[in-house]
Amino acid sequence: MSLLQIRNLCTTFYTPGGLVRAVDGVSLDLVMGKTTGLIGETGCGKSVLGHSILRLLPANARIEGSIRFKGEELLCLPETKLRRLRGREMAFIPQSPATSLNPVLTIGRQLVETIRLHKRVSRQKAREAAAALLELLDLPAPEKRLAEYPHQLSGGMRQRVLAAMGVVGNPSLLIADEPTKGLDAIVRRQMAAVLRRLTAKTGAALLLITHDLRVVAGLCDDVAVMYAGEIIESGPARVVLTDPRHPYTRGLLGSLPAHGLKPIPGVSPSLIDLPAGCRFFHRCPDASPACGEVWPSLVKQPDRQVRCLLFAQGRESGKGVYGRDLQAAVV
């Protein structure tokens, strides 16, 4: 049973430069106890998708489509009801730990506030719970940390505080936005372990927004790859990561150090002025003239979905030499 059903979600921003179509017709299902990775380059709309679920968007944004959480349509929910879901049913771990904690309030104050928002407990009890939670997340000297201000903590510690803040309400859906961004390798691994432990303990669904393929490989059951506002390939993580079909997914994997660090040439198209055909057309090594004109739809395959003309109308030829090479490289 899916916990969260996103159907044909479009998030648009009105800016002085024009309409920015940050998320364009995305459908996605999240299941209890499963971790879904949402990957893509900076600016592909993956964070906007995360924010759209909780409707944490600025006033110049418009959301269309459908987001159902436990069968309830979130986009029709009044703000007050939605607020009751935030933090309690659906929690959000923001990116950039350096700026996501309030600099003028102590860690304790920010955690206690969150706890007391969701549970009717005394300040003292909440403080104890906060310390216990930090201890669970392997934060050394939790009591001392509670009295400190964010700037006194390291990046990894701040990220764990944010993670702790996310899970205090025992949410059934956890959205982690780039939880490993800007952290060094060791802290990144610790953070991944923390997330794995949290989901295992609570049985929550986790939406992991990241551009870090290694984190996806280590944590995720499913994966969805986003490009220029669209999902271009999705399926079980093992399948997609070992046998990528879409040329963009292949490119992403090819840019990993293990595969020779080959970056994808070019830049993604402007989300204001989107091309008529495939959005990856200009950077695609396998593009045919038709790709520049025909917009590909998401094609269902037995083990996944792909948005590419190479796989439309039963054309399987595109798999070619490319895929096999990579498969060998990943395994």
């Binding site: 944490l56 607020r83 933090g87 923001p94 996501s100 904690l101 506030e113 928002l117 803040m165």
Partner: peptide
């Protein structure tokens, strides 16, 4: 416009 405002809203604060 700061990131911590998003954090506060995501918590479910009024």
């Amino acid at each position: 416009a700061q990131d911590y405002m998003l954090t506060a809203r995501a918590k479910g604060l009024g």
